[in-house]
Simulated scan of single mutants.
Amino acid sequence: MRTKTALRMVSFAISACAGILNPACQAAAEEVLKARLAQNLAPISALAIVAKANGLFGKQGLDISVSNFTSGKQCLDTVMGGGADIATTAEAPVTAAAMAQQPIAFVAGMEYSDLKTMTAAAAAIRTKADLRGKRIGFTAGTGSEVYTSALLKAAGLTAKDVTLVNLRPQEMLPALAAGSIDAFDTWEPHLANAKKALGEGAVLLDTKGLYSETFNIVVTRPYLEANPAIVSKFLAALIEAEGWMKSHPDEAIDIVAAASGMKRDELAPIWSDYVYRVRLDDKLLETLKTHAAWRLETGNHPPGAGMPDFSKVIVAAPLKALDPARVTLSANP
């Protein structure tokens, strides 16, 4: 009797793992696909951070190793150099790569938010016009540079009216604290870190709505062609993370704050500044075209470059196969 009972239990377990009673067990038994993610470790990468923390990549049969950086440019450069497979990156590195005719595939946007300007209280910068004659930190080759250009234009200034200082995001706070610069233009968590470190010595300039930076998922075209299943499963995990974050905002803030080195009470007040959605839409396309036009206007592009053909950059098929409603491009890129 015990032998028959044991056999029935084994048979039950085999049936379950064959997908008859438990499809998830079958998925777990499939071959695990490995990929390397180059990630900007900041709230703008929250979907990827949560997907990793909550095991959503593993649920899709993926083993994702993560290398963290402080800018999307570094992430995309790492992918183009062969050090990673998937990049979280903004539009600035994307347009630079497209103009250099690098074989990139823009497979989804996942976030957008406003860049901001932190100023030294001692610099007495109350309005955009007060930036005249000031030293402003920015990061070349990123959305920070485009935002800085838009900020000066909105203030009625040109680059000749200020001193621009090219810094990595993590160098900005020390420079502001030392008095080497009067303000800096960047993204979180570097703004919150400055406020935390300097208190009333750091003042945020009101530039809301001036420039929204997108954050996106980019791979190389050869990688996409060779690994369509990995890209599809990666996007599926981000979509699940998006839904979970909407249902569990408090837990999401905890996860992202811990991962990015921010205090929860610093991230929570600005959490609504981030719009998290996996999509390909006209806003993304327009941002890419606007950024490319800025490069052409300012000469910040490779010799002989023109407006990129974004139909050769944006690849909608993987996301459209997962959820057609998330692809709302009104025309061909």
Results as ranks from 00 to 15, higher is better:
108 A>Q: 00
316 A>T: 09
55 G>T: 04
66 V>E: 06
193 N>Q: 12
159 A>Q: 14
126 R>N: 14
116 K>W: 03
109 G>V: 00
181 I>Q: 01
178 A>H: 05
123 A>W: 06
266 E>G: 01
30 E>W: 07
312 K>A: 14
309 D>M: 05
208 K>L: 09
240 E>S: 11
2 R>C: 07
160 K>T: 10
154 A>M: 02
216 N>L: 01
143 G>M: 05
28 A>C: 11
160 K>W: 03
121 A>Y: 00
191 L>D: 02
326 R>Q: 13
42 A>G: 11
259 A>Y: 04
42 A>C: 12
51 A>N: 04
292 A>E: 01
231 V>E: 08
33 L>M: 15
182 D>F: 02
166 N>R: 12
140 A>G: 09
204 L>F: 11
168 R>T: 06
249 P>Y: 02
238 L>I: 08
196 K>W: 07
294 W>D: 09
65 S>Y: 01
318 P>M: 04
78 T>E: 09
201 G>N: 05
77 D>A: 09
33 L>Y: 07
104 I>F: 00
273 D>G: 11
55 G>F: 05
135 R>W: 00
151 L>T: 03
172 M>G: 03
136 I>W: 01
188 E>Q: 13
194 A>Q: 08
232 S>Q: 13
11 S>C: 11
67 S>H: 10
168 R>Y: 08
70 T>D: 12
4 K>Y: 12
26 Q>N: 02
290 T>C: 09
313 V>R: 13
66 V>G: 04
155 A>E: 05
196 K>S: 10
138 F>T: 08
43 P>V: 09
323 D>S: 15
28 A>G: 07
261 G>L: 12
199 G>A: 11
92 A>C: 08
306 G>I: 05
122 A>F: 00
116 K>S: 10
256 V>H: 12
120 A>C: 02
132 R>Y: 03
157 L>N: 08
301 H>G: 07
280 L>V: 04
91 E>H: 12
198 L>N: 07
45 S>F: 02
273 D>M: 10
96 A>I: 10
128 K>A: 13
172 M>I: 05
48 A>M: 12
242 E>C: 08
117 T>D: 00
21 L>S: 14
174 P>K: 09
10 V>H: 06
75 C>F: 01
204 L>E: 15
43 P>N: 09
85 D>N: 14
98 A>G: 06
76 L>Q: 08
190 H>K: 05
108 A>P: 00
311 S>D: 13
79 V>R: 03
20 I>M: 11
236 A>G: 07
